[in-house]
Nucleic acid binder design. Structure first.
Length: 433
RNA sequence: GCCGCUGUAGCUCAGUAGGUAGAGCACCCGGCUGUUAACCGGACGGUCGUCGGUUCAAAUCCGACCAGCGGCGCCA
């Protein structure tokens, strides 16, 4: 219906100066006076000021336009001019318009509480800041997948309704399933492991669900999990892939999303220094030098929020923490043959206090070793028969990792809470909208 | 799961020696302005989260409940 429609970005690029243009979108701001009305129109590509005058539109049409409210939808036609008085430097002088919907009061204006904005999240997603974040998020997800395709990985898809826990039973969401009970997936890892025996290098991006009653700035009950699993790869090699992947994602954001970074006030300089190689430290080293971070840690302590914040607060790039004590991680991690009390694993902590975004490492690939570790952890081998089978038939050394995609977006965008990194956050107390 | 906090007009909030509520913004009307989430005037707007208790009298004191927010633990 609209062959000749322009996007607002076409106007902002300067290519329509002195010409007729037709654009459509939503009223971002509107101000009127006796003789002029200023409509700042918004579309997916940006905002531009449009001015209508009583003189050229006529009394009736002028009133029709100037009485519109925020977020009403319309199309506007007029000539384009450069104008420094306009917010984005260009202006459309309105000769004609079509209103699609004249709104009642839009519920959102200035001075909105965090809580209210969450209640009207379905409308708040239209805001400039949120739109900018969504565009960056889109780039992050695209760049993540692109990286693995470029590296020869296969994208695969695993079930979200499952019968086995990956991280422990207490955090499972249970669902009725034809007279039985199933759980929502906490991680695709075990299924990814089954697929390396044919594809060798696999990755997936999928939601994960955890019924942890977490109340923090970096937990969601439903979050997006980027995971990979690779045959023949050790812990060191896995980390090298991950840092290259993070570097690639950050690079793409810097290349494509400068404007959006500026809208959300994220300093690009802080992202520009995300270059490989990242820092690497063993768990035991961190414990040994914990006074440097203002911490008093003893061997065997796990790192909590305060520890991660202190360690990463003044860092300029991410840090891999490796070789955790066996007791601190899940049963499937492979102990270091040189020192079986520590495992060949890594967490990647993002700088500026953001903390853990990746957990990964080598998997136990010996059957008896895996059985023994499962027993210690009270995991029922019957339930995991298929996972154990992988260690019976052509087992190979392999590694993998899981990345919190929403945490990655939170850090890259410099956000205060993970809830602002996803359109519809699911937390212990929020399931609407 | 643990600790803390909040709930008064559509929105943001003020309102305690207990005496049946106020401001700003939004909406509506009018004025003014090449405006920049402008300004001036007027009108509209509330069973003070719910239930119960104390009291002559409760937004205010007490109890229970509901909803949400912040922090910790757990993890990505």
């Amino acid at each position: 219906m609209t062959a000749g429609m322009d996007k607002i970005s076409d106007i902002l690029a300067g290519s329509r100066i002195g010409r007729e243009s037709e654009i459509r979108g939503w009223v971002y701001r509107i101000r009127g006076s006796a003789s002029k009305v200023f409509v700042i129109l918004r579309d997916s590509s940006g905002i531009v000021q449009c001015v209508g005058s009583r003189e050229s539109l006529g009394e009736e049409r002028f009133k029709e336009l100037s009485s519109l409210t925020i977020e009403s939808s319309l199309s506007l036609r007029g000539s384009v001019a450069k104008d420094d008085r306009a917010p984005t430097g260009f202006e459309l002088k309105i000769s004609d318009f079509t209103i699609y919907q004249r709104n009642d009061n839009f519920p959102i204006s200035k001075d909105m509480s965090e809580e209210f904005l969450l209640d009207v999240r379905h409308l708040w997603v239209r805001s400039r800041e949120f739109t900018a974040m969504l565009k960056i998020r889109s780039t992050v997800f695209n760049a993540f997948s692109e990286f693995f395709y470029n590296e020869g990985y296969y994208e695969v898809h695993t079930p979200m309704m499952v019968s086995t826990a990956t991280e422990g039973g207490s955090t499972l969401f249970k669902l009725p399933f034809f007279g039985e009970e199933v759980s929502l997936s906490q991680s695709s890892q075990f299924y990814l492991e089954t697929l390396i025996f044919s594809l060798e290098k696999v990755f997936t991006v999928a939601p994960s669900f955890r019924a942890e009653k977490s109340r923090t700035w970096r937990h969601l009950t439903e979050y997006w999990h980027g995971e990979a699993e690779v045959a023949w790869m050790n812990n060191e090699e896995m980390m090298a892939v991950e840092e290259k992947m993070i570097e690639h994602v950050v690079r793409r954001v810097l290349e494509e999303r400068q404007e959006e970074l500026s809208i959300i006030k994220r300093e690009p300089a802080k992202l520009e220094r995300i270059r490989t190689p990242f820092l690497r430290k063993k768990y035991s080293e961190i414990v040994k030098e914990s006074e440097i971070y203002g911490l008093k840690l003893k061997y065997g302590d796990d790192f909590g929020m305060e520890e991660e914040r202190s360690i990463t607060k003044s860092l300029e790039k991410p840090i891999f923490v490796t070789h955790y004590p066996v007791a601190l991680k899940s049963f499937y991690h492979r102990p270091d043959p040189e020192n079986p009390s520590e495992i060949l694993c890594h967490d990647l902590l993002a700088p500026e206090g953001y903390g853990e975004i990746i957990g990964g490492g080598e998997r136990i690939w010996d059957l008896e070793e895996l059985k023994a570790r499962m027993q210690e952890g009270n995991f029922d081998p019957e339930q995991y028969y298929w996972y154990l089978d992988l260690r019976k038939y052509g087992s190979v050394p392999h590694s993998g990792f899981g990345l919190g995609m929403d945490r990655l977006v939170t850090w890259i965008c410099g956000l205060q809470t993970i809830r602002d990194a996803i359109p519809y956050p699911r937390t212990i107390r929020r399931i609407k909208p």
